[in-house]
Design a binder for these strands. Sequence first.
DNA 1: AGCGTGATTGTTGGT
DNA 2: ACCAACAATCACGCT
Length: 99
Amino acid sequence: MPPKKEKSTRKKKDPNAPKRALSAYMFFANAQRDIVRAENPGIAFGQIGKLLGEKWKSMNAEDREPYENKAEADKKRYELEKADYLKRKENEYLEKHEA
DNA sequence: AGCGTGATTGTTGGT
DNA sequence: ACCAACAATCACGCT
């Protein structure tokens, strides 16, 4: 049973919010944005989204490789962010306690 | 130890 | 600034 998503997708919860990482789709969209939009000048988001989604899944694992690859790298990027973010939290915490 | 959840990522276009 | 479908994510925190 999938989670129940109500509405909106943004919300803050962390003070430093290291922000997650991008997903393969984000990289894929980055590339498609240039192409899809080039082939569909003036294409609206609704069309792009559906069209992209279809093609995205239509891509072979080999095609997703570059995107997944980037996604992986991006994840690591986030890893560092969160690491630094968590560290920062600890630092603040210690500061307060030491005072 | 295992589980669920939420938050987030980026595109475009319009209001 | 925000929102919407589209897809992935996946680390975090909790008990």
